[in-house]
Amino acid sequence: MTNITLGQYLPGTSPLHRMDPRTKLCSLFIFIIALFMAKGPASYGLCVLFTAFAAILSQVKLKLILRSLRAIIFIVLFTAALNLLYTPGEEIFKVWIFTVTREGARIACAMAVRIILLVAQSSLLTFTTSPMSLTDGLETLLSPLKKIKVPVHEFAMMMTIALRFIPTLSDETNKITSAQKARGADLESGGLIKRAKALIPILVPLFVSSFRRADELATAMECRLYRGGEGRTRLHELKYGKVDAAGYAITVIVSAGVIVLARVFGL
């Protein structure tokens, strides 16, 4: 079965795909700070423009980005509604016990834009970065923590292995499910308890094979004398390039612009 997409990574060659994962992670972080300091229409507008620019640059289809936003539509509406109704201030109109104020409307809009941009930017990161390079990036970014004895490499290795085995296990689950269906297992009908029971023929073999795989992997790692992170070199060294310089420059300039607009001019 080849139809397993891990996370939502879409292979590609856009500038955003070629960017170092560290750049993308740091840029996202800087942008989020700026986003939370934004105040008026001008500063939020700049944030929207920046996101749109990144989306175009990523060459990810608009449909896919919108699809990732669909999951949070309820949260957006709920947050907006709460802010709209419960912010005290200058009254616009009143229906029964609900009062809509000018301040409420403003905050509701700002909140909605904020959440949407946050999710859109994070989706762009996962759309354009494979989980493996994401862990690599995180490991390198967090490596200063090694000084205070945080086992950064080990955590990253655990994450890498976990990610590596998601497609394998999901493949395995598919196979076992098909095999049990071929034996007439009924997974779709019945109440909650019956359905939970119907999972036993799938979960037991899945657990057995996971333990077997873990055992085999551990043996294979030991055979190659794996002893943790100390003194280890990498096959793919992370290297900054031109695209990263541009990425940092644009992010920092835009974010500074947003903060200045919001905090100095109050726009």
Binding site: K175, S178, A179, A182, P201, P205, S209
Partner: peptide, 16 residues
């Protein structure tokens, strides 16, 4: 499902 009995590859991994 019952008319066609399907034995998968490495069927030993389906025992539970």
């Amino acid at each position: 499902r019952f008319a066609v009995g399907l034995v998968f590859q490495y069927p030993e991994y389906q025992l539970f």
